[in-house]
Simulated scan of single mutants.
Amino acid sequence: MTEAPGFIFYIIAFLLVIGPLVFVHELGHYAAGRWFGIKAEVFSIGFGREIGGITDKRGTRWKFGWLPLGGYVRFAGDMNPASQPSPEWLSLPAAERAQTFQAKPLWQRAIVVAAGPVTNFVVAILILAAFALAFGENRTPTVVAGVAAESAAAQAGLLKGDRITAIDGRGIETFNDLRRYIVMRPAETVELTVERDGAEVEMTAQIGVRVEKDRFGNEYKLGQLGVTPGEPVQVEIGLLGAIPAGLRMTGNVIQGTVDGLGQIITGRRSVEELGGPLRIAQVSGERFVMGPTDFAFLIALISINLGFINLLPVPVLDGGHLLFYAVEAVRRKPVEPQVMEWAFRGGMVAILALMLLVTFNDLGAFGVWRNLAGLIG
């Protein structure tokens, strides 16, 4: 077992991951706003009191906040959290008001808001496309080359030569598709669709469980079917095929995130698995030690999740703004300011509650609660 990196190393690795990803996210908002002629007053990496920054010739203050857990762009006219017109906004001179966020058409405001998460997805797609270009893409078919004795596959009745075409109605094409689905569902019951001798066969499998420990001592409970693939099929990806490959891999990560959230919501997976900044810092440090390839892949994963989370329809997040814009488009008038205000208050409470939960989980993963219980006992 490799000794885990030190605390300072965790922090440095965390900043190397989160800092650039927050920057490109906010840069997406900034670039879209500038394209539409909206003045940006502040571009901040981190929250809270400024610890350093500069003001450019356009009057934008580029700064760092002392709490490096996010960032923001404040456009001219952002005088309330919902970015709605206010008496203060109406009192601005016409020339200044024309450069504010509220003065722009609904479709332009929606693009500015969506540009942040979209930029995160673009970053991830480019990283994963580079991996596909460098290493190729594994397209080993789902033909069973071997079945482990007394495994979930053996008990379900899978045989050598069977081709698994779907699980729980979801079509699969490669062994990696099969592996991704199975590892997330330890001890669950799944329905397999199998092609055997030209006929379609349906069967039920109770996924097995295996516990793996990585080089840093972290344990993971994974699902196991008990089948082995045939000869690996690794396909070289050319320049034209790299972006589609990156898109496919990004889609797979998003699908896995949606599946994981669904399992937590339905109680099939413990809410304790939700991690926060401390867990991200831990993983960042470990992946940094493992080398640039693992670290770059982690950056892609976190970039995807940052984009995905920001698109959730929760007030305060980008997705919440987009939801209200969709309502505005349908109603042909903005949502009432008091409704927006209460919605954003509720969204802030929800986000703070989630942050407390994941921090509690992170401290538990680090053994803080166990050690406290030992001291009290």
Results as ranks from 00 to 15, higher is better:
P5A: 08
P5V: 01
G6P: 03
I12C: 05
A13V: 00
F23I: 07
H25D: 09
A31L: 15
G37N: 10
G37F: 07
A40C: 09
E41H: 05
I45M: 11
I45G: 06
G48Q: 08
E50A: 06
I51W: 09
G53Q: 03
R58F: 14
R61L: 13
W62S: 05
W62D: 06
W66Y: 13
L69M: 13
L69T: 11
G71F: 06
F75P: 00
A82W: 03
A82R: 06
Q84C: 13
E88F: 04
W89E: 11
L90F: 14
A95E: 15
A103D: 10
P105S: 12
Q108I: 01
A110S: 04
I111Q: 05
A115H: 01
G116H: 04
P117A: 03
F121T: 06
I125Q: 09
L126I: 08
I127V: 14
L128V: 01
F131V: 01
A132P: 02
A134K: 14
F135E: 15
F135Q: 15
G136M: 05
E137C: 10
T140D: 01
P141L: 04
V144I: 08
S151K: 00
A152P: 06
A156C: 04
L159P: 13
L159S: 13
D162C: 01
I164H: 10
I164T: 10
T165I: 15
T165F: 06
A166Y: 00
G169F: 09
G169C: 12
E173H: 14
T174V: 12
D177R: 05
I182M: 01
M184K: 09
V190Y: 09
E191S: 13
T193Q: 11
R196H: 01
A199C: 09
E202V: 14
E202K: 15
T204R: 07
F216C: 02
G217C: 05
N218T: 11
N218E: 15
N218S: 12
N218F: 08
G223D: 10
L225T: 00
P229I: 01
P232R: 02
Q234F: 11
V235E: 08
I237C: 03
G241S: 00
L247R: 07
M249R: 03
T250Y: 02
T250M: 09
G251P: 14
V258R: 05
G260C: 11
I264V: 08
I265E: 13
E273N: 15
L274N: 02
G276K: 00
R279Q: 14
I280N: 06
A281I: 06
A281D: 02
V283F: 04
S284I: 04
G285H: 02
R287Q: 14
M290S: 15
D294H: 15
D294W: 14
I299A: 12
I299K: 03
I302G: 05
I304T: 07
N305S: 10
N305P: 02
I309L: 15
P313V: 07
V314G: 03
P315K: 04
P315L: 09
D318P: 07
G319T: 07
G320V: 03
L322F: 12
L323K: 11
E328N: 15
K333R: 15
E341C: 06
R345V: 11
G347C: 10
V349T: 09
M355F: 02
L357N: 00
N361E: 14
L363S: 00
G367A: 05
L372S: 06
G374E: 01
L375W: 10
I376G: 02
G377K: 10
G377Y: 08
